[in-house]
């Protein structure tokens, strides 16, 4: 167990190092950072002065080493616009994004489980088909479009909810509704096909032979088994979701990490972009690590070794 933990943490650290390197290379591939950062009418002398000040005139390998060591020391440079440490700027915005992602994910996942289990308990293919049809229809509308339509109806026309921002719990409703309903179809499909596979399984039949009722069979026996393959997908998907909130945060003017990154790209505030990308990568790694442990906890056949 300890050994497993050490191995996995070392793996996570290696991944993070790879991401750091990637970010370092990417920023330099995008062109001369100093040129990008400076106003177009800056003189060559001004550009050179900034280059000097940021240490960007040194050999690449030296810059890389410097970048790595200061990153590992928790410093990712200062924001060019705000003059504060970039990491601080990013961490400030993290909670808004994580709240939105986790809340939407949890609600969407729970809804999918509830719908799949309801259809399976009812033993009705038609009901499941109906659920899946609605979920797929919803999923075929892109979130930004669905979100805008929701704002139009619920805020502009009916005046029930705030349209944008993050001021009260009411302001969560539309973004969460938009993202969580988008997630349902995927999990409904995954859990449904897991049910299909085990419905005629020997051990399911044996459980029925004990006199187990259908609701109990579905909830106590089939569902825990069906969730096993879904958990892995859910972990990856949650990571993707966090990164993908960039667009929606812009639509809803949500003060999260995604909007910060977009603003920073527009403002050419590269230290903040770097820190933001790293933060998203780190949460991806942490979630996957958590999923591995969760999987081992759910499935006794998996040994953490």
């Amino acid at each position: 167990m300890t050994r497993y933990l050490v191995v996995r943490l070392a793996g996570a650290a290696a991944t993070l190092l790879a991401v750091l390197t990637f970010v370092f290379v990417l920023v330099r591939l995008a062109g001369d950072p100093v040129r990008l950062m400076m106003p177009d009418q800056a003189t060559a002398a001004e550009v050179e002065a900034v280059r000097e000040a940021l240490g960007l005139n040194r050999p690449l390998i030296v810059q890389y080493w410097d970048f790595l060591t200061s990153a590992l020391g928790g410093s990712l440079g200062d924001s060019l616009r705000q003059g504060r440490p970039a990491l601080e700027v990013v961490l400030e915005r993290m909670p808004a994004t994580l709240e939105l992602a986790f809340l939407s994910f949890a609600i969407g996942f729970a809804a999918a489980v509830a719908l799949a289990a309801t259809a399976e308990v009812a033993g009705s293919k038609r009901l499941r088909g109906l659920f899946l049809w609605i979920a797929t229809a919803r999923q075929s509308a892109p979130p930004f479009l669905f979100g805008i339509v929701m704002v139009l109806i619920l805020s502009v026309n009916l005046g029930l909810l705030p349209a944008i921002g993050r001021n009260s719990w009411l302001s969560y409703v539309i973004p969460v509704l938009t993202i969580s309903t988008f997630e349902i179809a995927l999990y409904l499909r995954l859990i449904g096909s897991a049910f299909d596979e085990m419905r005629e399984a020997d051990w399911v039949r044996t459980a029925r032979a004990k006199g187990v009722s259908r609701p109990r069979l579905v909830l106590r026996h089939m569902l825990p088994n069906a969730l096993l393959p879904v958990v892995t997908v859910a972990g990856i998907n949650l990571g993707v979701l966090i990164g993908g909130l960039v667009v929606l945060e812009t639509v809803f003017n949500w003060p999260g990490l995604g909007r910060l990154i977009i603003d920073s790209v527009n403002n050419r505030d590269f230290p903040v972009v770097q820190a933001g990308v790293l933060a998203i990568a780190a949460s991806f790694i942490v979630i996957n690590l958590a999923v591995d442990f969760l999987y081992a906890a759910l499935d006794p056949r998996v040994r953490l070794a």
């Binding site: 020997d202 051990w203 039949r205 044996t206 187990v212 088994n225």
Partner: peptide, 19 residues
């Protein structure tokens, strides 16, 4: 089922809930 009529199935490997 179970109370009046018990069942012992064929394949011990596949007839128990694995988790």
């Amino acid at each position: 089922r179970g109370r009046g009529i018990g069942l012992v199935p064929q394949d011990p490997m596949s007839n128990l809930n694995p988790i």
